[in-house]
Write a protein that binds this DNA or RNA. Structure first.
Lengths: 238, 238
DNA sequence: TAGTGGTCTAGACCACACC
DNA sequence: GTGTGGTCTAGACCACTAA
């Protein structure tokens, strides 16, 4: 059962995406929306807060909610998204090759990365992503085995996130990520079409479920010319 | 006058940073906090929502608010921060050299980047950032002249954001940023100590005031070994 | 079952923009 | 002054967790 403020958010977001409200226009006032949606003002305000956080509108006290031009940020690499979700949104022609899929007893490095005991095990996956026929991304993922008991190489060729959320019914909650530029390793050179590039962009991160338990350590190594990160951020005023 | 929920947020955030609540511990329940702070539940919930958005806690229905281990993300390059704010938080020894400071009538490129008419003008600034004596960052900023009438080279050697927020009383609201890797330009080679590096990391962005008007176009060019971007993101469930 | 967070309501007062 | 968004309150009901 979706909550009321989510439904209001989705309807307004959809209207903005379809262009029913143009950039620089004002949305109806909160009081107007209260009447339209037969909701209380706080409920409307929750929906507007979501729109604001995701870059759809800017609220201005005394004036109203200004619609922003979201066209420039519609391909975000930000947030917590899977490669499959991204490639679909960006209409890229991509293939995935699973080059390794192993169950491994947690050695010291894995114990620290995934907060495991030495009794537990992890699934270690390496996948190469081809874009337009070129091998440009190497994804290395370590997952807590007990969280994803039925994971197979086949599934991981598709989308691990989809399996976790739709098949297992788990909720992915948040992630920490870091972006740095490094020299290619031997593995990078072997598995990617690096051509002359002397650097790779490395995105490292940990992903958590909604019980605040880590379930994935991920390292994504990109050929620099195919890497792009887009971000919408609000300044923290407090 | 700070609002009540901001004060509650700041106090709890401070307590978590000082370690008064350890990771994996539960914060007091919302009802407890209502009594402690003599506030209504919605007010407490606004404070907790802020803590959650900024990675301090994870709320779990039926259980409580779990404190997260924020130590790993305490140097965020995310959000909208100025170089000075970052360098102070990270305790880096940095110097800034202003290599250009010009008022320019808006030509076509500037008109599109800053949404100006041909009548208006912009301030174009180039600054080189030295870290530990090495020139590793080239910042190129274009600002709407009418927004920052009294800006000088002196001020821009310090912090432009500080001047805008504290001296002019304006409110910086949000930014769009993009990170890509490019080949160095002649200018990069001339102004930075690139040594052997054959790439630069380019962060391009537009910054907006709280009236949703753009006031800054910024391009920050980093030597790859000195670049790092850290991000905390929640998965968008809706 | 008791305690927790999630949602929603109706009403109040304030601060700010615009006329 | 009127209309806008910002904050705060008190109370209600629901969904989930854990004993």
């Amino acid at each position: 059962m979706k909550s009321k403020f989510q439904l209001v958010y989705e309807e307004l977001a959809h209207q903005i995406q379809k262009g029913e409200w143009q950039p620089e226009e004002l949305l109806p006032s909160e009081l107007e929306l209260v009447k339209q949606y037969h909701a209380s003002r706080e409920t409307i305000r929750k929906a507007l807060k979501l729109l604001s956080e995701r870059g759809y509108i800017q609220k201005i006290q005394g004036k109203g909610s200004v619609v922003l031009d979201r066209s420039k940020i519609d391909f975000p690499f930000s947030g917590v998204s899977s490669f499959k979700e991204l490639s679909e949104r960006m209409n890229m022609k991509v293939e995935t090759e699973v080059v390794a899929f192993d169950e491994v007893k947690a050695h010291l490095e894995l114990q620290s990365k995934l907060q495991l005991t030495s009794e537990q095990s992890a699934i270690c996956i390496k996948r190469v992503r081809k874009v337009d026929g070129e091998r440009v991304i190497l994804d290395k993922d370590d997952l807590v085995h007990s969280v994803v008991p039925g994971l197979t190489a086949d599934i991981s060729q598709n989308s691990i996130y989809e399996y976790i959320e739709n098949q297992l019914g788990l909720v992915i909650s948040f992630a920490r990520k870091e972006i740095v530029v490094e020299e290619p390793t031997e593995e990078d050179r072997a598995l990617l079409d690096l051509d002359g590039f002397s650097n790779v962009v490395v995105v490292r991160g940990q992903t958590y479920l909604d019980d605040a338990k880590i379930f994935q350590y991920t390292e994504s190594r990109h050929r620099p010319d195919k890497f792009r990160f887009v971000n919408f951020a609000r300044r923290e005023q407090v």
